[in-house]
């Protein structure tokens, strides 16, 4: 007698868990699919804005303007499989900037971004970060304007110096106090991207 009801209880437990899970996961899947295209579009706009920023092209936040300027000024150079190798951008002063994708291992996770190089493929036109999950208030400060802007015009094998130094040397940049690992990661990922740039871009950039 007791055995039967125990089996019944177990069955109910399993069924209940299954039904409730299916119900909630079902709602989630629906919402996810419903918003998928919006999310994809947001991502695409975000990336485009980042590429433009890296090449020092000013745009507002308006999606229409971003799309328009991007279409005019950016050419996506792809490889045989359709993956973007780099972006060839016509900067505000008419010169060409090659924007490369860059990534490195930070403290908490992967850091992704863009590194833009002038036509000599050595001088940095600008950098930007697209993905980072570093410590807010510390490592995450790499997304602050002052940190990114300081890279414009830098050249050579980059070296970190303490925050606040504002060195005149073209290969030194201010790290972030208290965010050693993140600063190190940024240093090595930019250096790596610059080093690999000629190989990725082929024999120089179109004039």
């Amino acid at each position: 007698m007791a055995k039967v009801s125990k089996a019944k209880q177990r069955l109910f437990t399993v069924l209940f868990m299954f039904t409730v899970s299916a119900f909630f996961i079902g709602i989630l899947s629906f919402v996810y699919l419903f918003t998928k295209s919006t999310v994809v579009r947001n991502e695409s706009l975000f990336l485009k804005k980042s590429v433009l920023y890296t090449a020092q092209i000013k745009v507002s936040d308006s999606p229409v303007e971003i799309e328009k300027v991007y279409k005019e000024k950016v050419e996506e150079i792809k490889d045989a499989d359709g993956n973007i190798q780099y972006y060839s951008v016509v900067a505000d002063n008419g010169a060409t900037v090659a924007v490369f994708q860059s990534s490195g291992q930070g403290l908490w996770g992967v850091i992704k971004g863009h590194v833009g190089l002038k036509s000599d493929l050595e001088t940095i036109a600008g950098i930007d970060f697209t993905v980072q999950t570093e410590t807010p208030g510390l490592g995450a400060r790499i997304t602050e304007q002052w940190f990114k802007e300081q890279f414009r015009g830098k050249k050579g094998e980059l070296k970190r110096v303490p925050e606040g130094t504002k060195s005149g040397n073209e290969n030194e940049f201010d790290a972030i106090t208290g965010a050693t690992v993140t600063s190190k990661a940024v240093e090595s990922m930019i250096n790596k991207t610059v080093k690999n740039a000629p190989a990725v871009a082929g024999k120089g950039v179109k004039q």
Binding site: F16, F24, Y32
Partner: peptide, 26 residues
């Protein structure tokens, strides 16, 4: 299974917020 069910419900709402934010307040 009350802990599992509570966990499921909590996770549900959090992910719901996450998905909605990603779409409308990226």
């Amino acid at each position: 299974i009350r802990m599992m069910v509570s966990t499921l419900i909590i996770a549900f709402y959090v992910i719901l917020v996450d998905i909605v934010l990603k779409a409308y307040l990226p």
